[in-house]
Design a protein around this nucleic acid. Structure first.
Lengths: 181, 181
DNA sequence: GAGATTTTATGTACGTCCTTCATGATGAAG
DNA sequence: CTTCATCATGAAGGACGTACATAAAATCTC
């Protein structure tokens, strides 16, 4: 097996992916590769986390989209409407409808009419859903601990900070674009 | 519209997501939330990048998986086998077969027999594929520049570094697991 | 060398995520 | 009251990704 997975260290002692860098430098030809490299690295990291979560937590039938919804619901005991879930997750509301469908089929979430707006539907987590999360917690914690081995608390906070700055930029951008529409 | 997108600043001046933190602290109850928070942030950031790329680059019919393959091929003019592509992308080879199918249907990639192993299939980028990337370059560069607004070069390098450390950990973990099998 | 095992790509079948467009019900504004 | 906007969902489809089975070729074992 050829070793396709290569990561090198640059002059500042930071990791980079040589293949990605040459691929990008070829087209951009300057220091602008930095943003593209960072984007590629984020994508790679996200994949790694996703795979880790899938295999490490034994993944009792729930996939990333539904898990995302379930976690959001677990923080709001009064439930959230489909639309709010869609906005906070950044996906279409039609999609959330489907995700809530599967969660409701599994008994982890329940639909209820919204009190203030009869068009809306409240999704609320059930005791079974809480229990599911309780069981999910431990293995996932272990998996995350493994994949973040050797990260100091400062590293973790820094990574979180940079990623959320990025998400914040994106949020402002779409807000601006929607406002201009 | 309720503002579902909330990001706060912690005592160190770093961003964090209050909803995620309370959701996690409730189950873990300690400083171990850091790893989970970081993982959630990476996922959010990856989503943001994905959406930015999809809408910003006008996305002429190519999606993230196929784009990933095409970029890898663009760095190796001699082509890569399906298996190597699968290993470097971290997905199943069957999946890569499908991605190469769509790329070949679009004329961006060509299959050829591998010289050293008649079972293998070389995927090689075509001139049309090179041109596609050439057209893709500029808008994507702009989109990445926008989403990484206010990031210093050091920030970008740091983000890349942390993400690749994470990917490296994951790589070692799976290697270890496969080796122990 | 001959046969058994492994590797490589792909066919088949399936599940999930996500999208756009259309629609019925409801709310809000004039 | 009429008109327009919003909410959730039905219908249809595309793309990604998996597991299992299979044919062809390479490699190992005797």
């Amino acid at each position: 097996m050829k070793d396709v997975h290569k990561i090198s260290t640059d002059s500042d002692g930071l990791l980079f992916d040589p293949q990605a860098r040459t691929a990008l430098a070829q087209f951009i030809g300057g220091d602008d590769t930095l943003a593209m490299e960072a984007a590629a690295a984020v994508r790679t990291a996200s994949h790694a986390i996703e795979r880790m979560r899938a295999q490490g937590s034994e993944n009792r039938g729930l996939s990333s989209g539904t898990l995302d919804v379930l976690l959001r619901l677990s923080t709001s005991p009064d439930g959230m409407t489909i639309g709010d879930l869609a906005k906070s997750a950044g996906v279409s509301s039609r999609n959330v409808t489907g995700l809530v469908d599967t969660l409701e089929r599994d008994g982890l979430v329940q639909r209820a009419p919204a009190p203030h707006d009869r068009r809306s539907v409240l999704a609320r987590i059930t005791p079974a859903g809480q229990e599911w999360i309780e069981n999910w917690r431990r293995p996932t914690q272990l998996a995350m601990g493994a994949i973040f081995r050797d990260f100091t608390p400062a590293d973790l906070a820094q990574l979180r900070h940079l990623c959320l700055r990025l998400a914040d930029n994106h949020h402002k951008l779409t807000e601006y674009l929607n406002g201009a529409r």
